[in-house]
Design a binder for these strands. Structure first.
Lengths: 191, 191, 191, 191
DNA sequence: TATGAATGAGAGTTCATTCAT
DNA sequence: GATGAATGAACTCTCATTCAT
């Protein structure tokens, strides 16, 4: 059982991470620690009590995000045994975190290297499930290296995410274009 | 006829733009105006004589870049009447400007909104030629909306460009993976 | 008779002072209260339970140090009745606390004024014994005001202590140069 | 011939150094760059236009100071051929820069290492002249290693400088005690 | 036209101190 | 009495922009 103090500390840390998540999703990764602190209603110094540096905060945040995203993809993907459902699940998960995910892929170069790696690892979970399902359905799918199929899929959805302002400035992109993208990709893969 | 002064001025402006292009290609768009001025061998203030603000410089630079890229694509694409050659031409052009182009798509969020739009317009030229060729070859190509085919192609190559550090940290990505990407895409499109 | 709580409290206080002594000896007086607390295995706040402010801690520490040093000098000096043995005793005592003593004279300006005064008072004990012995041996010693002789001696050893990094970066200075300094000083005083 | 711009720049740099000199002399080396900027009537950023970092400012300042002090000592010492005059000259020079010199020897440990070395080198100039004169007068001086004589002298005056608050809180120490110290030291050296 | 020294708002980070637990 | 999370003022340093020359 946790003491009140421990709970409060965890709360503050969580609050900072959640606020950072929102602020970054909204303003991008050039948002300042001062803004995050203000929005989280903690003092500026408090951020550095919980995270020794901005880079550390970013790493933790993205690590956490990666864990959540990865495990959600994993959980949903596990029960899917056809490619269509898998892609749908993938889109569903990304749609839920769309705003932040866009910032992540759009501003990756601003992030500390460690965070970049962390994020890179997320992809491999999706790739793993993709692989598994593709192999099973290989008879109806064009004979191409799996990784190229996967990268085409990733490229397609990232392209729409990165160009959200063109495709769907106000509403979430994946909500609007997800089905279309899926159908396109399925049709392309088909023998 | 231009006075000597005017020529000199144009020269300086050009020098700044060229240097900015190189510096940004090398260091990304967080490079400072001071660095650009130094490398261009002009004073720091001179930059602001020619461009009222950094954002203006970025807009002009990307405008210029867009014009060059657009017209090069246009020039090469005009003579191509099959999809394969067109894609090859597209890759060739992008390969020539790879470093800067990557920065552009990777750090687009750092750019002023106007520059983002400017750049967006570039795509339409490629799209136009893509459209034209696809329609001609529609008999052998899967029956999908052309813009989705185009976006799949763009997504694929952008995905490799954006993840250059993973796919080809040292050598240019398009040089190494271009053919493979093209073949993949052609195979996918095929009926 | 003391309650358990009182004993505990005294213990903690002592622990803090001892740790502070070691940390300051090692790192100088710019060491932070957080470091001291950590090393003393008490919470950061505990320091301020025992000492209302950092300055107060410093004053107590230096007061205590002064008391120990003063009484040690006094104890040893009391039994010495010739100048040579007195100086030797003085050096011996200082050698035992060399590291901290150096910090004290080297970083005196960082200390609260009160601590500076406290420390100043230490000197007078040495001066007192010096005086006494000198007067007894005045026949063989140059006819100079005693305080000037004493200050010359203090100056000489402080000079070596303050420039330890030049004279003896690794080994204790007084161990290495003490005898030499003593001989020099004795020879200088001699008629 | 220098342009107005160059003169102005040099002026600002000089102003910053002079102000830093005064502020440090008055408040010690923990004075902040903001205070120096304010007192020098330049913006805070200007300091970093002229000196890339605080450490660099300190190094330049102490370098400059060392050069001035060293050459003054050298100039005055050159024409002196007896020890008495030499010591008087030494005291005269130090007296002129007393406040800053005290900070330098009192807070040496706060300075960047490079500055510490710079300062150390200053001493050797005094030592050189001391050596030369002592050798000439060796017949009347006690037979002791010259460096020990020199260090005794340095120790003596540094001791009075470092304890200015005890010996002469208001008036300059060397003005008040210089002659006395000199006489004492001469008497001690005498055979 | 070109210069570059000067500006100043704002960045991340540190740390003695407080106070609810 | 002891805790340690939270505070916030103060620190050094950055950089697009200005303007007298």
């Amino acid at each position: 059982m946790k003491s009140k103090r421990q709970l409060q500390k965890e709360n503050t840390r969580k609050k900072i991470l959640e606020t950072a998540y929102q602020i970054y999703a909204e303003q991008g990764f050039s948002a300042t620690t001062a803004v995050i602190a203000k929005e989280a209603r903690v003092s500026h110094g408090t951020i550095f009590v919980h995270f020794p540096s901005l880079d550390e905060l970013l790493c933790c945040l993205i690590q956490d995000f990666g864990d959540v995203l990865g495990s959600e993809i994993h959980r949903l993907a596990e029960t899917k045994d056809n490619i269509e459902e898998l892609l749908k699940a993938h889109l569903d998960v990304l749609a839920r975190y769309e705003k932040f995910y866009i910032r992540l892929i759009a501003e990756r170069s601003l992030l500390p290297e460690e965070a970049q790696l962390t994020f890179s690892n997320i992809q491999s979970i999706a790739a793993y499930h993709f692989n598994k399902v593709i192999e099973r359905e290989s008879s109806t799918i064009k004979n191409l290296p799996v990784h190229l199929l996967f990268n085409t899929w990733m490229g397609l959805i990232h392209y729409y995410l990165l160009n959200k302002d063109l495709f769907s400035p106000d509403a979430p992109v994946l909500e609007r274009y997800g089905p279309e993208l899926m159908e396109t990709f399925l049709e392309l893969m088909k023998k």
